[in-house]
Simulated assay, not measured.
Amino acid sequence: MGNADLRQLAAIEEVPFAAVEGSVVAVDVHNWLYKYLTTTVQWTRDDVYTTTDGVEVANLVGVVQGLPKFFEHDLTPVFVWDGGVTELKDEEIEERRDQREEYEEQLADAREAGDHLEAARLDARTQRLTETIHETTRELFDLLDVPQVEAPAEGEAQASYMARVDDAVDYAGSDDYDCLLLGSPLTLRQLTSKGDPERMDFQATLDEHDITWEQLVDVGILCGTDFNPGIDGFGPKTALKAIHEHGDLWGVLEAEDEYVEYGDRIRELFLNPDVTDDYAIHTDLSPDVAAAREFVTEQWEVDADEVERGFSRIEEAVTQTGLDQWT
């Protein structure tokens, strides 16, 4: 998920949606979907999104509630799915698994104690993107004619790459600060929050601190990334000062008598990630809202009242944004 401390260095500004209307956004779908999934689980009765067979599809509620934000502001989302997990991330994944198991134990205790508020909070924290969630989300996107891209590895890396090299893509969309290290020229953040989004500017960040892309990545590695724990005592400002003094990661490590395992490989994961040009996207969307509604409420038995407002907002966006090609 990246190191949130990098916000201290990032050039970020809040922008009105009017300033980004008509844009195409390559969205890190795992980052986007997980936020809506956990919010739905925490604040919605589980019978709303649980089928008669006991399958939970809270993701469908989240998608229907989240997509209108794009459509109402004339933004075209291109959802980018994670591919294979980078092996250097194994330790982080194991730590997350251990944390989830701890939450699950606490969840059982909260339920036994009858603490419904705490149980809802912990239930949200134990969510994971299951195969059913993947499959049903993809099918709903297809019905709504939302473009999807399969990344060979990290979704945020592919989204950042698309924003950097594809003239048809204006922004990466993610709350993950790794998009900055991955060189996304412009990243839209807070797309799952109320209010206007934030725009994170890669080149402005480099210019503000008089550093290169490589040096920015080195700062990130010193602070800690998804692939390494960082060096004790190094926050963003300390790391930036050290990079200015010693030039690069290797100079700092030598001066501090420190070591980062696989430091060169981690650097390459940000500067030259595993990405692909083998994709096609379209912006002339023709969503079948009726079929999408039937899929969610009849096939997967989601409470119709819970998603009707979201579907209505999607339909209303057709008129409000003048997208005559929508059906």
Rank of each mutant, 00 (worst) to 15 (best):
Thr276Asp: 07
Tyr262Arg: 11
Gly155Tyr: 00
Ala18Gln: 11
Ala119Cys: 10
Ala108Arg: 10
Asp53Ile: 01
Val146Cys: 12
Val29Pro: 00
Glu208Pro: 01
His134Phe: 13
Val289Ile: 14
Glu268Lys: 09
Tyr161Ile: 04
Leu75Ser: 09
Gln320Met: 07
Phe227Asn: 05
Asp288Phe: 10
Ala317Gln: 00
Gly183Arg: 00
Lys35Pro: 02
Gly235Leu: 01
Thr50Ile: 00
Asp109Asn: 07
Trp250Arg: 14
Asp201Pro: 01
Arg138Pro: 05
Thr225Glu: 06
Gln190His: 08
Arg111Gly: 07
Asp175Gln: 13
Gly247Cys: 14
Glu139Met: 15
Met200Phe: 02
Asn3Glu: 04
Arg309His: 15
Val61Met: 08
Val78Gly: 11
Arg121Thr: 02
Val149Asn: 06
Arg313Phe: 08
Ala157Tyr: 04
Met1Cys: 03
Gly195Phe: 04
Thr52Ala: 12
Thr40Ala: 15
Thr283Val: 04
Leu6Met: 13
Ala151Pro: 07
Phe71Glu: 11
Val275Met: 13
Arg164Phe: 03
Ser174Glu: 11
Asp98Arg: 11
Leu33Ser: 09
Val165Ser: 07
Ala291Tyr: 14
Gly83Leu: 01
Ala317Met: 03
Trp213Thr: 02
Ala11Glu: 08
Ser312Met: 13
Gln203Met: 02
Asp98Met: 04
Phe71Ala: 14
Thr38Arg: 15
Phe227Met: 04
Val63Phe: 12
Ala163Cys: 06
Arg199Phe: 01
Ala157His: 04
Val29Phe: 09
Val48Ile: 05
Thr76Ile: 01
Gly173Ser: 09
Thr50Val: 06
Tyr36Leu: 13
Pro185Asn: 10
Lys237Ile: 02
Ser286His: 13
Val48Ala: 09
Thr86Trp: 09
Gly114Cys: 08
Pro68Phe: 07
Val61Tyr: 10
Asn59Trp: 13
Val41Leu: 14
Ala124Ile: 10
Ala255Trp: 11
Thr137Ala: 15
Asp175Glu: 14
His246Cys: 11
Glu301His: 08
Ile243Tyr: 06
Glu21Thr: 03
Gly183Cys: 00
Asp46Trp: 14
Asp218Glu: 05
Gln158Gly: 06
Gly224His: 01
Leu216Tyr: 01
Gln320Cys: 02
Ala157Leu: 03
Glu306Asp: 09
Val78Met: 11
Gly173Tyr: 09
Pro68Ser: 14
Gly114Arg: 06
Val55Ser: 09
Asp303Tyr: 06
Leu285Ser: 04
Asp178Gly: 09
Asp178Glu: 13
Arg7Tyr: 08
Ala58Ser: 15
Ala120Arg: 10
Arg189Asn: 06
Thr86Pro: 06
Val20Lys: 06
Leu6Cys: 05
Thr137Lys: 09
Ala19Gln: 14
Tyr34Lys: 12
Thr51Met: 10
Thr137Arg: 10
Leu323Gln: 12
Arg267Leu: 05
Leu182Tyr: 03
